[in-house]
Each structure stands twice: as C-alpha cells, then as structure tokens.
Nucleic acid binder design. Sequence first.
DNA 1: CGGCATGTTGCGCA
DNA 2: TTGCGCAACATGCC
Length: 247
Amino acid sequence: MPELPDVEIVRKKLARWLTGRKITDASTRDAWVARPSPRSFSRVLEGRRVRAVERRGKWLRVLLDDGARLFSHLGMTGDWVRVAKGAPPERFERARIDAGASSVRYVDARRFGRLVATRKDIDEWSTLGPDPLTDGVDVSALAKTKRAVKEALMDQTLVAGVGNIIATEALWHARVDPRAPARDLEARDLRTIAREIRREIDRELRPGQTRWSVYGKRGEPCPRCGSKIRSVKLGGRTTAFCPKCQA
DNA sequence: CGGCATGTTGCGCA
DNA sequence: TTGCGCAACATGCC
C-alpha cells in the first residue's frame, strides 16, 4: 500500500466517505495499533462531526468539529475500506468508524500502522518536512546533509512521503548514484531529483499498473542501457540502481 | 523452509 | 551529541 501516492488515494476516499458526517460509533480492540488506547479512540471520535481529511507525507489527519483529531499511518499493509453498516469484520480489521451511511474499517495485516486519537497534533506530524505534492521538494535541505542522497530522500523530516520505491525510481530517472553524499551533488542534479520525485508520484497516482524501472529488478537489464541492475543496502533498505547510468 | 517485503522506532555502541 | 547498524513489530508471498 503505502507511499505518498497510495496514501493520497486513501485520503480521497476517506474524505468522500466521512467529510461532513457525524460519527455514531467508533471502536477498536487493538491496543497496539490504537494509541494511546482503544478507549480513547471511541471517546475522542464518537458524537463528533468530520470536518476534513488531510494528508502530509504518509500521515493522514482527520479533523473533527470540536478540534480533536485522528491521525492514521498505514505502515506497510494498512488501508481503509468501506462496507455496509453492520457488516461482519473484514479480514485483519483493526478499527471501525460508523458515520452517516458509511461503515469505514481500518484493515492492516502486519499492524505496522497507527491510529492516534488526540486533541493536539503529534510530533510525528509536526516534524514532517515539506510534502512534494503540496509544498514541493526543498532542495536546499538536501544539500546540507552528507548522508547518501537516497537516505536523505527517505528522511521524513526532509521530504515527507518518499519511500523506498519513489526514492529508488526517481534516482534512476535522474541518473544519480543513490550512494552519493547529498551535499556533494550539483545543484542541477538536486533539481532533477526533485522533478523526478514529482513525476514518479504523478505516475503512481494514475490508475492502472505502474511498472517500475529498477525497483525490485536486481539482476535484470537496465531499461535504458541494458547493464545489469545492481542492489545495495542503504539505511537498511534494499536499493536497486544501474551501475552505468547512475555512476 | 528460507528469504524478502511499499515503514518506523528504539536500543546498543562507536 | 551524533550517527549508524540492526533487531523488532506480524504476516503474506515466492
């Protein structure tokens, strides 16, 4: 599921299902996913009307009419789905929000996701960097770090919403070595990377099968030059790249 | 069975 | 103080 484009698609459907509706029932039994507690999930949400569903990076924020809010991070396998009111739990369902005619369910097989019902913003939201879709990419922030550019791109405080796939693909399109220290790159390359991040997001926002050029393609020929795709670990994450194009 | 996975956090250690 | 590597979280898939 989850990188910025997926989360944006989830935001749109959640907004469609919930905006302007009054929450009649909200419940969860999962004390791992729902923080600070399953009881606070119900207490904060029930009886409130939904004002807006927003997104920043990979986080969603559901604003309520009394100023409280629900934060939702989809982790690796999270999603929100709508079913008929009173329908039995979905497979891997972790929480339920009934509002208007909708019964909206949070499903998450691996439970890496989070639901946080609070009265004020959480640090994970407040410390997010600019969102590429709404704010653009802050190239100057990247130019300040000596970390590998791919790790910098995935740092949510520098760029919000870029994950392993977008970082890997954007660097291939920009022909930049993912291992290169970010601050050693030419300004021109950084601008190209920013542009390719935006293009990759746009590609993945379009419905239909996205085909990746290098992500998950170790050992296969580079679509541009035919060299064999290599992969290395950067910040603990598999990073595929073309040793010839991205030299 | 082993290995890998679109994400994040927290811990030990240099 | 900073940064890095790594395990952990829980499950599915090849």
